[in-house]
Design a protein around this nucleic acid. Sequence first.
DNA 1: CGGGCGGCCGAAAAGGTTTTCAGAAACGTA
DNA 2: TACGTTTCTGAAAACCTTTTCGGCCGCCCG
Lengths: 343, 343
Amino acid sequence: METTNPTAPNRAVTLRDVARLAGVSVATASKALNGQPQVRAETRARVVRAAEQLSFSPNTLAQGLITQRSGTVGLLTSDLEGRFSIPILMGAEDAFGSDQTSVFLCDARGDAIREKHHLRALLSRRVDGLIVVGARPDTRPSLGRDLPVPVVYAYSPSDDPADLSLVTDNVGGGRMAVDHLIRCGRRRIAHITGDPGYGAAQDRARGALGRLSEENLELAGGEVWFGMWSEAWGRGATRMLLERCPDVDAIFAGSDEIARGVLDVLHEERIDVPSQVAVIGFDNWTILAANARPPLTTVDLNLEQLGRIAAQRLSAAMDGTPGSGVETIPGRLVTRESTAPLR
Amino acid sequence: METTNPTAPNRAVTLRDVARLAGVSVATASKALNGQPQVRAETRARVVRAAEQLSFSPNTLAQGLITQRSGTVGLLTSDLEGRFSIPILMGAEDAFGSDQTSVFLCDARGDAIREKHHLRALLSRRVDGLIVVGARPDTRPSLGRDLPVPVVYAYSPSDDPADLSLVTDNVGGGRMAVDHLIRCGRRRIAHITGDPGYGAAQDRARGALGRLSEENLELAGGEVWFGMWSEAWGRGATRMLLERCPDVDAIFAGSDEIARGVLDVLHEERIDVPSQVAVIGFDNWTILAANARPPLTTVDLNLEQLGRIAAQRLSAAMDGTPGSGVETIPGRLVTRESTAPLR
DNA sequence: CGGGCGGCCGAAAAGGTTTTCAGAAACGTA
DNA sequence: TACGTTTCTGAAAACCTTTTCGGCCGCCCG
């Protein structure tokens, strides 16, 4: 059975075809379809009907050529594998998806040459704006000031303060984690985290220490346990910690992976979570956090929201209201069962 | 300090500017830059130099308008969150990224209406082709036969056999897993897997049973343990399994999540992996598999390669060689430490 | 020396749309 | 009736590039 699909313009049908069918000129057809006022209602209706009948959809390339606006933006990510770029990308795609702009996805694989290549291609396609999503929350080189379109940096801030960058709040996240543990009545709080070469590790630790000192508390175990972003390190560090400081009553892990290792060892040692020791993670990597035993309280950096805001800021810049500097997006606490008030 | 608004500078430099600087006509400039033969070497050099000097990049919209090829493809995914669409998307982006086509990313969030909306937008942008990436390996409705551009379905096959679909090999993967266990000398093999409502669960089980019957082996535990795609189910099922069938020497888990639960209980029960019981997972979800204790042998469905092949097939179709039917992409075994020969 | 030919270049059309501006039609006013 | 005004429509330019085709020039051959 032949059904003509109304959403499928079969052969490129142009405005000229619509105009001919409606018995008007292309100029009038254009105005009718775009809601311009200088066209009689009756005429407009005729044009609209013709357009529907032919299932006309305007050639965006031609529109872009004349309006000098392609209605597209480029999403330049340096690391699609990285789990951090994906939610940001989702948020951005989501924020644009609703209105009439489409998104070009480019993955530079962390390679500066490839990035230049993609940048060139995107400019050649006359994108109206760019979002640059980094793989690590550390500073990255700016694309430069003389680009013909506005740029927003997400996750990795640009090294040029004249650019607009959006970053996660690692300091605030660390503070938030410790604050939660304190509110649960914990006083002997340890911090096990990842590679000290990551700014994120340093920032989270800084936030944690800041909140502790407000309460005149010291870190249980005497210091921050830097190491690696892995379960194995979480296990090893926990064993050492328990030896040095057996009366610890809360552990703030610098990532959910590390937290999984922590939980694992506590389980082995028959130390109950959360009644004896509370554990809090970081990142809210659902697959790890929600499936942990017990499910893991953790800090969510709101990456998706970061992506959405990046899209909004870019839209504003494209409309002539550019921003600059570094904007920090707050995180939020996700409470599960690995933390609870004492007693 | 006041800096000039970064959105203000570079007015788009056109071919006309290049031509003027080189002292030729736009026609000649075009031919010179595109390697057309009817232009003297000296003239060509002059044009190229001018283009570089102005850092000219051709307006792709105008090119697309005249060549009737936009040099873009649409990537229509139904579920960006899902971990399966991401690698496919990466592979596709990668395969295109090298040459001169750019990729529009659209996430329909599993909503048919949004999908129609995006489809319309993409066609309006005159994409040269479409890749539709599903969220589940089950059949999905075709976009229809009367689209003006070729389409390739990835992961979720289309319900129209005239379309070209690429899918993962779940049957082969199940067979591969069991084959590996048999080669390790295991004879009492159990299978714990996820939701029986998923075709993937059924297919993997079918492959496993097929390989077992070739060896005249029965499934340890007597049946396939269907349940949920979670660690908790992996734990629960393993406990029941050990009770009913204490002499099991290998467990094939239907996903890495489930495998993590399996490992967890075996560890609790002081049953050594792999010397006493071998464990194999499925999906090669690195964060789970590589960090397990011991690191998990698992089946990788080669999703990234699936994406790459989808891109290749689409390119072929755009060049006039369309395909149809369902093409199955084989998986591969990733050997880690949770399996080993007996003795 | 004239005609033919090959090499090189430019004018112009085409692609599909938006926008400006002039003109036509209808209507009201003097 | 003549004229101004309002309302609507269409011709044409513009956006930027590619491609076709005709023209110019110098050269070779007869």
